[in-house]
Design a protein around this nucleic acid. Sequence first.
DNA 1: AAACTGCGTCAAGAGTCTTGACGAACTTTC
DNA 2: GAAAGTTCGTCAAGACTCTTGACGCAGTTT
Lengths: 413, 413
Amino acid sequence: MSQKAGGSLRSLRRTNQEQLLALLIDQGPLHRAALARLAGVSRTTVSTIVNELLERGLVAKAEGKPIADLDGRAGDLLSVNPRAAVVAGMNHTFDGVWVHLGDLSAREVASAGTALDPDTGPAERIAAGASILRRLLDEEGLGLGQVLGAGVGVPGPIHRGTGVVGVSLPGQPWSHVNAADEFERALGLPVTVENNTRLEGVAEARWGAGRSVANLLYFGLSSGIGSGLILDGRLYRGAVGAAGELGHVSVSVNGPACRCGNRGCLVLRAGIPAVLAALRPVFGDAMTLDEMLDRTVAGDRAGERVLADVGAVVGQVLANLCNLLNPQRIVVGGELSRVGELLLTPMRTAIRRYALALVREVDVVQAELGRDVPPGSGLGARIGALGGAALVLSETPDLAAALNRVAAKGATA
Amino acid sequence: MSQKAGGSLRSLRRTNQEQLLALLIDQGPLHRAALARLAGVSRTTVSTIVNELLERGLVAKAEGKPIADLDGRAGDLLSVNPRAAVVAGMNHTFDGVWVHLGDLSAREVASAGTALDPDTGPAERIAAGASILRRLLDEEGLGLGQVLGAGVGVPGPIHRGTGVVGVSLPGQPWSHVNAADEFERALGLPVTVENNTRLEGVAEARWGAGRSVANLLYFGLSSGIGSGLILDGRLYRGAVGAAGELGHVSVSVNGPACRCGNRGCLVLRAGIPAVLAALRPVFGDAMTLDEMLDRTVAGDRAGERVLADVGAVVGQVLANLCNLLNPQRIVVGGELSRVGELLLTPMRTAIRRYALALVREVDVVQAELGRDVPPGSGLGARIGALGGAALVLSETPDLAAALNRVAAKGATA
DNA sequence: AAACTGCGTCAAGAGTCTTGACGAACTTTC
DNA sequence: GAAAGTTCGTCAAGACTCTTGACGCAGTTT
């Protein structure tokens, strides 16, 4: 249970170092006396430790002007050196890869990506991602040892333990690749592999429409349908990592057969191919999906009806889900979500109708991140990359300890 | 984030005390040298601390014969004094109340209960429970200050934050009672209130069919239908505490109306009243439910068919739930579960049929605890009381610290 | 300008842990 | 049955970390 040793005098010093680092990481710039008060130790001790951390380059004098909320002399503001350690996020979608570097206080350090042909194989995709990551690190003057970890997104469910991407759809590039191993080898970093949708959910939970919500369902509506569950503040994966695979929940027991082997799957009613098929008769074969969505948002009644039907069937699933999980908020994202209320209103109606009174208080809102992403630009991978970095931040049990270790390495190198 | 102070020298001593206590709590009896190795401190330090804890009565010499797994001299075995601190569980069902006292290593200290008339009001029930608790403490020579907390079960969903029991069924004795406050006042203890079914789930997760399973669904099949979700090792409650209220999941969109305001609720197909109604035509009006179940278990074909239908409809819900939560195991409990395979087999069939391949690996098993409870004896409350104690154990963030505090009080008193 | 408040640092002192040594207890070997 | 080997628990001396109280300094208020 209590794994951490923490006994000797030396470890008391380390504990205090890490406590001060932790305070600086999540309370922002502080001066020595404030640190002393927050940590419950004397100013003298803080001075000793801080000066040592300054020497090691873990902490830097913050330039921001002193906060003079009290009468007397203002102290030197200190903050974690943003160049001391970073976290990485990388997200592979069918049409590209995006890499994000962030510091420990969740600020962006650097970010870049590239579009890839949908036919590109996994090996080439991994190489492309690794090369971007290395370039970003070089440009920022950072070494691999300063990267605490990488959260990597790939399409499809990840089998927990084996790290193999499951076959959600046969013929996918990533099928049966042991993604975790491959990425760790290519990047030389501790890697957590997750599916794209979950990472988008993690990003929304940290920076987007799900900020400061402990129980959150992110619902991703794209060609596939997936979700990310944040339960009691943490990403929930399930026993083998298949939690939240909502595309193949059955919405009509005797509905059309799905290639998954079941009938009446949600994806057959609300996935992009299904929506496309429903919109074609309205707008004809010449338009792209995005043009059709634009027309619908502009007020096309027939298009509205198609989307309302999609919202209604999704809402029915969400209602059952509310009965089971009682989330505080549902964030709807994915390519289809940009139509906003056209989809959200029927969802809310269905939830009010089919969910228990106790759980109906749920908010249903549109995703916030990536609204600036032009449709079809291949930039959609960016949000998931953000989420990858957020995942590392939230799942590193003790960021301060990790920072302390990394820098110890960095100092000797 | 890092709330715990831990800075001064004095706190180093306290940290080490608590670490040794924690080791003794969950690694059982150990001698000083073993403690030193596990904690990473010197034998001298352990001696100093242990002798102090012995003096304070927190630790006692264990009588068990020394484990001579090594060559040399055997050390004095030490363990946490089981009389130093306990946790309480109390469970109120419609027909009685049961109280359980356990020590910090999850062993039973004492246990008792009483049957109550279904018409009994909440005030009288609370008084009855409190009186049993006080009697048990007296008999064991324990004071209130030595009880770290109580987990209390009541029928119906608890609104998190307000602590009010929601109205799942109008006319219930507990409706609109602020249970947490009432119990804290009556017991003079920190209290966590939960619904019966969840506590049964917690008990199964700790001691029963769900031992050492991190992702577990306990499905309780009685007059009402509820569940307890253990996700990543912890009880999941949802935003307002209504997670897992499965009785009113809709299983047939245009099914019969339910008093909850929806249609086709699961409880109308699988709740005890529904099962009773389905069995009556088979066995006639003279038999009790238990007699009918006995006859069915003994081989009555018509009864088997009724239960198979129940299992099938429940299985359909469980299949969707597996798609969403991907649990490792489903434990089926409640009064109906004693028929075992008659119910479990059709459940498994439905799950295989309706759940995604990835999540089908789920075990579906019968609850283990309380199989010795005679049907209709009013002893059903016992399992939940066990769960109440388990809940306190699992949700007290640092048992060792709590123990250390309690004893500090106890020493002055 | 003077008084006041709070910051950062220094030297002395107090508290906790470790090291190395010892006798005691148990196991194995002769 | 005695001797050798191993491990346990304890003691005294020494090392390390934190705190206390004092000081000079930098701001704010009067």
